[in-house]
Amino acid sequence: MGTVLTVRDINVYYGAIHAIKGISFDVNKGEIVTLIGANGAGKSTTLHTISGLLRSKTGDIEFLESSIARTPAHKIVAKGISHVPEGRRIFQRMTVEENLQMGAFVSKPERIAHNLEYVYEQFPRLKERTKQIAGTLSGGEQQMLAMGRALMCDPRLLMLDEPSMGLAPILVDQIFEIIQNLHKAGTTILLVEQNAQMALSVADRAYVIETGRITLSGTGEELAKSDEVRKAYLGG
């Protein structure tokens, strides 16, 4: 199993605030790796840095053995990293299908029909609503749409930022079921979650981030059993 993503000693600042203080981790092919941590720990910032929306002052980010630390954001998507941003960022005024087609903006035209079918297979709910205006979808459906859109460009690495945020428990279960299905289909996933319990239950490996640093790492199972994680994130 080869390494898909290597993050080495990145430091990210928001002005004077030192948000990420030397984080390093890696993601192997076919894995689900999760970053867990409290609000403001730097989880989303890490994802933004990988997808090129923020820049690291130091260190390097390697994707499929080439450095992407200085690659502009729109080219990183074309290289195969698909980022599902926090808070269901969909194109409100386009239909479901148009949203999905936008997701294929950088990919090869001949792949669109195939990928569209694949996304509808993974998200049958979206198929029922192809012509609906995306802004009128429910929260869970919007999250599915954002994830489906990210799958449209044949990603080699799918980065999910808080997919369970603001969803009812039953929908959270559905979303995580889909994440596991994608995992079974061979997608490499980097998952950022506050819902540590759910995240650890699906993850192959996990990293705990606290105030910009990685404080713990291990397999999902190990961390779920670890006392520190249980106290801090799993409620005893």
């Binding site: 997808s51 929306l53 502009p72 954001a73 729109h74 080219k75 990183i76 998507v77 074309a78 698909s82 980022h83 599902v84 941003p85 960022r89 969909i90 194109f91 409100q92 005024r93 386009m94 148009e98 936008m102 997701g103 903006f105 950088v106 954002a146 859109r149 990210a150 449209m152 460009c153």
Partner: peptide, 19 residues
């Protein structure tokens, strides 16, 4: 389409690789 996507949601537009 890309222009309208950038208007509707800049972050989403960036996340699908639009300049």
């Amino acid at each position: 389409r890309a222009i309208m996507a950038c208007r509707d949601n800049r972050i989403a537009a960036e996340s699908i690789g639009l300049n």
